[in-house]
Design a protein around this nucleic acid. Structure first.
Lengths: 288, 288
DNA sequence: CCCGGTGATACCCGCCAGGTATGACAGGCC
DNA sequence: GGCCTGTCATACCTGGCGGGTATCACCGGG
């Protein structure tokens, strides 16, 4: 009477995202009629109208939007429970006591130096947990923490949000514009954010934010190598924290952006975590 | 294969809390054998041993402890989804547009003045959400935010933890010792935390923290009136923020505790909240 | 007017959650 | 040792419900 089943949440989230029973059913690997019925039962049990059926597709009601948000969070929490439990039991007992393993999510290609120092420090620590580094797509570390693919992550404000996590500050850096070495602006000592917003021959590269690309003239970027190449070819420019200098090519030029907001790297973890291994890692990280 | 059902989580949490299949089954309103089988299936599906059966009761394995913590969080999230969805649809459309309603959890009897000012300010705000004040037991506001009984809460550090919530600071106050007016210490200008820890004839009252009472000689307190009476009768003393002076009796005396840590009142809400009504309330609160 | 597309309804079936009865096993007691 | 008790596991059965197929009701467009 009171408790939602995860199955129902999965079904509703699918329908709410697709706004189409047929496509949602396909995505769920089932037929459309039982899905319709399940949603109806859900609405009856909650005593709330979730979807406005418009004969031509479907729209979310206010309550539906609430359930979409809260339901996603709940689904993330349950899959996180499953994943973390599996990991906890995986190699539960090594040669000396329970073998602890932590999955650390990092933006692929970011914070090279910092990460290197962190891993070295952990390796030096006797009895510290084994760290598995999990490279993540753009801005995906937050989702990985929420759904249990990772136990701890390196996040970069203002690109990432720390909402819902506990965190410690690790490093603050300025930003640079990375552009083709031959470009006329490459010789400048500094640039401002306005300068690079509308260069006719060099549009700003676009990264996906939570899976969607912002509008704009620049190319859509999938990975760092691709971006590096496009910059080297003179087709785009991009903005990075200082530490990106580590992977620049000869054909790249870096120009400081003194007025851009500083990028702060944090180590972040789910607020309810109660793991000794994690606490040790955080202590190690903040001592760097 | 991959996703845990809430039913399984409920079952496991019950067993993990009782550490006894029979009692857990009773609590769940079902027979013991299907519960045993469900837990076995869960262990098989996760590929992980959750419970160590000791012929004489049951103990949690490491993975079991992880699932207990994460599973509780997941269950809270799903019941929160159900509750908030119900509330969102409840009186979804009032006379003028969607009627917004927020449930604000406050520790019963705390922050009288602040709360009064906040409610007045909200009432003055045109188009602001209707605020339902939900008095909570000791330290229960956090749980209420997590499981959706409340949308927003007033929390008091260091008694409450802000972990997992977004929050804004509202008020900082010192603490006072409340003791019988006739007591020899009532005339003192100030007391230190050590002073009040071991007064032979006046043991410190004990509040439940997350449902359990800390050990000690003092009486176990259930509500504020009861405590007030016990103090007035000269049976105990208690520590409160300054604002508690509002409800003191004539037979009470308040002595400042300048060395006690200050109590900071925060307004806190689930980090993932995206409600306009909530944002407005927070803006109102921080402007006080 | 018919046709394509959408969600709802009707009906059926097989699986699995849950119940009852019983077993297996360890410990305490006389 | 024999027995009882408490505990979890096993065996077996049943009913409900989750899911499938076929079909309907409805609307918009050519």
């Amino acid at each position: 009477m009171d408790t939602l089943e995860t199955r129902e949440l999965r079904y509703f989230v699918a329908v709410a995202e697709e706004l189409h029973f047929g496509r949602a059913a396909e995505r769920l690997g089932m037929a459309q009629p039982p899905l319709s019925r399940a949603i109806q039962q859900l609405e009856r049990r909650l005593g709330v109208r979730l979807l406005a059926r418009n004969r031509r597709g479907v729209a979310l009601t206010g309550a539906g939007e609430v359930l979409l948000h809260e339901g996603r969070a709940a689904l993330d929490a349950t899959t996180a429970a499953a994943r973390r439990t599996r990991r906890a039991g995986d190699g539960a007992d090594g040669p000396d006591g329970p073998r602890n393993r932590l999955v650390l999510a990092v933006k692929a290609g970011a914070s090279h130096e910092l990460l290197h120092k962190l891993l070295d420090a952990c390796a030096a620590e006797p009895g510290a947990a084994e760290i598995e580094v999990l490279p993540s797509g753009t801005c995906e570390q937050e989702a990985m923490l929420r759904d249990g693919r990772a136990d701890v992550a390196l996040l970069h404000t203002p690109y990432n949000s720390l909402a819902g996590f506990d965190s410690e500050e690790l490093l603050t850096e300025g930003q640079i514009a990375v552009l083709p070495a031959g470009h006329r602006l490459a010789a400048r000592k500094a640039l401002s954010p306005e300068d690079i917003g509308d260069i006719p021959d060099l549009p700003l590269a676009r990264w996906p934010r939570h899976g969607v690309y912002p509008p704009g003239p620049g190319p859509e970027i999938h990975d760092l190598t691709q971006l590096a190449q496009l910059i080297a070819l003179g087709r785009t420019l991009a903005v990075f924290p200082d530490s990106a200098r580590a992977w620049l090519w000869a054909e790249h030029a870096a120009v400081p952006l003194p007025d851009a907001p500083p990028v702060v790297t944090h180590i972040a973890w789910p607020a309810h975590s109660r793991s000794l291994a994690l606490a040790a890692l955080i202590r190690t990280a903040t001592r760097l």
